[in-house]
Design a protein around this nucleic acid. Sequence first.
DNA 1: ACGGACATGTAACACGTTACATGATTAA
DNA 2: TTAATCATGTAACGTGTTACATGTCCGT
Lengths: 179, 179
Amino acid sequence: MDIRTFCLGMLTIKEASGYEIKKMLEDPLRQFFDASFGSIYPALGKLTEDGLVTCTATPQDKRPDKKIYRITPQGRLAFLDELMRMPGRDRFRSEFLATMLFADLLPARHLSDVIDKRIAEYRQALAEARACPTEGIPIGYRFVAGYGEAIYSAAITYLEEHRHLLESHALLGTPRAAE
Amino acid sequence: MDIRTFCLGMLTIKEASGYEIKKMLEDPLRQFFDASFGSIYPALGKLTEDGLVTCTATPQDKRPDKKIYRITPQGRLAFLDELMRMPGRDRFRSEFLATMLFADLLPARHLSDVIDKRIAEYRQALAEARACPTEGIPIGYRFVAGYGEAIYSAAITYLEEHRHLLESHALLGTPRAAE
DNA sequence: ACGGACATGTAACACGTTACATGATTAA
DNA sequence: TTAATCATGTAACGTGTTACATGTCCGT
């Protein structure tokens, strides 16, 4: 699902400006969804052109007009259409895992440092997922936040229980079997 | 970590052709890392230009030369340099989760179908992670495969235990609070 | 006869990020 | 005075995918 479609989806929940859509992607959802202004604003422009949303500019003193976008009936249909397609594969791109893949090349101290920091980040993500409000939001939000909790809990547990595999290896300076 | 660096990393494990690097990314690792020929071949070309790898073309009958790449000492240094940098944030882009976010817009049957299929896919991924060989590969490989197991197990459990939240909602046809 | 594995490579395209451009208000 | 929040938008850039181009061998 591209940003354009995702914005359209956000507008099924409530009317919003580009700025507000960006904010909705923070806190509980930022782990899974993210977008920059540079993609949101053009996306909203295109949706307006295509008649899937309407735009009302509200003048504000000493600021650019706030543009409130609302989804149209055609917009709802188009979004549903997109939503009914079978979702594609997940893509879990992780620089952390890429680093762990080559952990045997790293100094022991640095390795431990990287793992410590990542566990701390995951704890942070977990706390944010748990802070997800339980009212006034579609059920899907809670479901996704819960998914985040489950995944991050599992990741933390795994890292804590298995980090020694990499760390003991690093301390021993064991050379690779392949070399 | 971009594809170029990742190829360099693969070559720290053993010499390989572009085709072989692509194959190394299948099976246990494909969940986390992936790359197309369209990115691998140009990457190897650039690495050769930069002197980080060398290339030996082995003629084969009735086939294009097989080009074996080997990492150079400078290549190892460059890769280590890259590996020592703190890894950036994970990016978990999931069309499935994007769909679940708006689950309340979907017909109940379709929703169940999507969840069923996804659970089946995760089971498949889990089986592949478990099939990861335990010998002749760097310790990091096993660690990453184990991470995959942990994550996919947790995801399956979560989906099985919480899918009813979305499904009962869909059956009831409960309208959104926000509307 | 057809698809898949082997083997490399290029070009067009899609998609999103970062940096730039502008500017007021408010809290530390 | 420095940064953050509010508020929108464009252009350059990076990075990777898909499709195209070529051709053999092997199994069913």
